[in-house]
């Protein structure tokens, strides 16, 4: 169980970092998503791994699983989900407006960055 979980976290992190280092928007977004999965699994493991134990103690129960990391992971998953949805929209918008998937496609707007508009 421990080996399986640590392998999963390791592989997810490695893939995430690899994708992050590509200088393209979509792989970067995917890489961050994989990294956040890895961190969520990792957070889950911080409460120690136990098998077949309930998180809520009942009468006559001998052991229990730490319920706090489970609650934390749930919160982190919700936030991560919202973030992913948001950033995919952002990436699509950038792709549509800049016409390229490169991270530094636009570079610096030279000349008058405001165009016709005032601050």
């Amino acid at each position: 169980m421990e080996i399986l979980l640590s392998l999963a976290i390791g592989v997810l992190t490695a893939c995430g970092v690899y994708l992050l280092l590509r200088a393209q928007t979509f792989p970067v977004v995917l890489g961050l998503t994989l990294l956040s999965y890895a961190v969520n699994l990792f957070l889950f493991a911080s409460g120690r791994l136990v098998e077949g134990r309930p998180p809520i103690i009942a009468a006559g129960q001998t052991g229990y699983a730490d319920p706090l990391p489970q609650a934390l992971v749930l919160t982190a998953i919700v936030i991560g989900f919202a973030m992913t949805a948001f950033v995919i929209m952002l990436a699509l918008k950038a792709r549509a407006e800049l016409g390229s998937d490169e991270v530094d496609a636009q570079g610096e707007p030279h000349g008058d960055p405001t165009g016709e508009e005032r601050p």
Partner: peptide, 20 residues
């Protein structure tokens, strides 16, 4: 504006790394 999406992506990527 177009360059805003790009700035927001850069901001997002590094802030997200910090958050993780």
């Amino acid at each position: 504006r177009p360059w805003q999406a790009e700035a927001a992506l850069k901001y997002f990527a590094l802030s997200m790394l910090g958050t993780l």
